[in-house]
Design a protein around this nucleic acid. Structure first.
Length: 289
DNA sequence: CTAGGATCCTGTCAGC
DNA sequence: TGCTGACAGGATCCTA
């Protein structure tokens, strides 16, 4: 899925493009994607005005002017695209960001006054819900979330929470949203590479210094991506008109299997860890066992 | 309680 | 060309 930086990019874009706009109609093309009863679509969504767009972990929260909030999760292949006076989109980087919409991945269309918001999701894992705004933090998943990586007291909370997973691999623990919020497969791989830690290292084997290195590496990986992702929608089509992938602008190991490590030149390998593909530099991220 | 694997769904790509 | 299996930027459910 879009991970924290991509969701942050979506939220920043939506804040510029849909706040203070009224939702005139909602077209549901996939019931699986729209987990809102038809009566609630009519009674709570249609006719409301968007007040603000927020993010918590990988959740997108669109506050309406009736004390309710649209909660969206893009999961693996979701994306949000605005078409109107301006054209813009972010999330899963595929052709639907550029295509005429709706297309075969379009699941929900929000008709605003002078523009449309498209919820596209090839694999239909993502969803849209609506809740009273004050109930969001009471949702079990939201309540269980670990700290936002850039919040002031994130580090001690991160340390306390990851230490509950002593027998897990460090990769498995970092993928847990209850340990730290917003990481997914790519940023866990990127962060462990930058911290020089092998993903299969058990949490019980990590020193306090290791944890500090990992936490700093997470913040660097995320912030570099947010910087690049902020322009992802514009740079997705390169100057020559071909498709581009903004991840290649900052990724150190993602998608680089078989290529030389930027640090030492060793060939990047791809292994399986915590059930997910994991690119590593075998020299920079040595096994400790 | 934890940890690991299967699962939801659609599409693409490598290898016959 | 057509088929098959592996895999994919997530999180939940089931099992042990």
């Amino acid at each position: 899925m879009p991970e924290l930086p991509e969701v942050e990019t979506v939220v920043r874009g939506l804040n510029k493009l849909i706040v203070n706009h009224k939702i005139n109609n909602v077209e549901v093309l996939s019931n699986k994607s729209m987990l809102v009863e038809p009566e609630a679509v009519k009674g709570l969504i249609i006719g409301s005005t968007i007040k603000a767009v927020r993010r918590r972990a990988k959740l997108i929260l669109i506050d309406l002017n009736n004390d309710h909030t649209l909660m969206m999760h893009l999961k693996m292949t979701g994306q949000l695209v605005v078409r109107g006076a301006e054209t813009w989109g972010a999330g899963h980087p595929n052709d639907s960001l550029l295509a005429r919409l709706p297309d075969k991945t379009t699941r929900v269309i929000f008709d605003l006054d002078d523009r449309q918001l498209f919820f596209n999701d090839q694999r239909k894992f993502g969803w849209v819900k609506i809740l009273p705004t004050d109930q969001i933090i009471k949702q079990p998943f939201v309540a269980s979330l670990g700290p936002e990586p850039f919040s002031i007291h994130a580090y001690p909370q991160f340390v306390q929470r990851i230490k509950k997973h002593q027998k897990s691999t460090v990769k498995g623990a970092l993928l847990e949203q209850s340990v730290i919020a917003g990481l997914g497969n790519i940023y866990v791989n990127e962060s462990l590479y930058r911290a020089h830690i092998h993903p299969q290292t058990l949490v019980m084997m990590l020193s306090d210094q290791d944890l500090q290195n990992i936490f700093e590496a997470i913040k660097i990986s995320l912030s570099k991506s947010i910087e690049a992702g902020g322009s992802s929608s514009k740079t997705y089509v390169k100057a020559d008109g071909t498709k581009g992938n903004y991840l290649t602008k900052f990724a150190q190991v993602y998608g680089r299997e078989g290529k030389p490590c930027f640090n030492c030149g060793t060939i990047i390998e791809k292994i399986k860890c915590a059930g997910r593909g994991s690119e590593i530099c075998p020299h920079c991220q040595p096994k400790r066992w």
